[in-house]
Design a protein around this nucleic acid. Sequence first.
DNA 1: TGCGTTTGCCTAAAGGTTTTAGGAAACCTA
DNA 2: TAGGTTTCCTAAAACCTTTAGGCAAACGCA
Lengths: 189, 189
Amino acid sequence: MARAGLTTERLTRAGAELADEVGFDQVTLSALARRFDVTVASLYSHLSNSRDLRTRIALLALDELAVRAADALAGRAGRDALAALGGVYRDYAREHPGRWSAAQLRLDPATAAASAGGRHAELTRAILRGYHLSEPDQTHAVRLLGSVFHGYVSLELGGGFSHSAPDTEQTWTRVIDALDALLRHWPAP
Amino acid sequence: MARAGLTTERLTRAGAELADEVGFDQVTLSALARRFDVTVASLYSHLSNSRDLRTRIALLALDELAVRAADALAGRAGRDALAALGGVYRDYAREHPGRWSAAQLRLDPATAAASAGGRHAELTRAILRGYHLSEPDQTHAVRLLGSVFHGYVSLELGGGFSHSAPDTEQTWTRVIDALDALLRHWPAP
DNA sequence: TGCGTTTGCCTAAAGGTTTTAGGAAACCTA
DNA sequence: TAGGTTTCCTAAAACCTTTAGGCAAACGCA
């Protein structure tokens, strides 16, 4: 019987596609096996279990996001950089809703430490250099920006903003304006 | 055989407790049946399926949150109200992580419209009356606050802020300060 | 209080997902 | 090309979901 050419890599990528198509929590080893026309047991040579698959998809998503973010931030600063970074998250979530969900997966500390999560914080910190905040305010601001981007994208994608004017596009630019203003006039304790 | 006294209500509440104990995505009809010492099939007299259970837990959580929020906001305004509302989300998520996850469940539009979601937006809007924002800025601000609270709580709960000083308690008060300052000096377009 | 009806919970069964164990064919390397 | 390793398979057990059909307890009404 001919080999299917399975690989942890290929399985992870296919899992990510599957997530975007049917939703991250519908990603199943069975569905993945079907996609490769292979029995489920065969997957266990490349993945230790179904949690392993989900973790790998999450790490893939975090990495893709970090790459896009680094790309988008090149040569930008200030409000421009803010809009670029937020736009990366927003666009990615719309293009790849399943991967976006995957990126929210709770990782155990060791895995999280090895993930691209730190790069995200670093990129955010890079933006803040343009706003001349010193520690610990810079860390506070990193966390605030992370919260806003994460929260906004999740709520928008989940339909939390629908059914009401004005449209989210306007809100988005105004939110960026507001963050820019806030960082330029960061309040003293 | 004696009846177990099952009710959609009781099952939903038990499901919520289960979610807090083992995680929302580990909530299963089997586990619920076990908890009541009843066969799984018996649950189908009170719940149409497992998705139904999850939806009900989500609605319960949204409602509990809205009740707590309304309570906390009574008699407060400005920064005080901001801190109170955010605190409600934060405390709820820590006390009831499973319910908090449930509250993030994507609801179909009809269910979402009948949920307590609208009350949350209304409560946020009430806070903003103290900041004298006019439409459409008020809506933008409602969405921003929703994003920050949702994002902050999710990231903090997911460990996104751990492994780094300063502690999240400090960041939290500085984030509230920042939001207060931002709303008092909301930038013109 | 007795009787019919409704309801609550049951057994049974089918179908899907996860995981492990063990075997055979394909691939690589010396 | 012989040996060892890797890849994929069959088989089987365990668990979750859902539907169908049945019996007895609880309810409602005369």
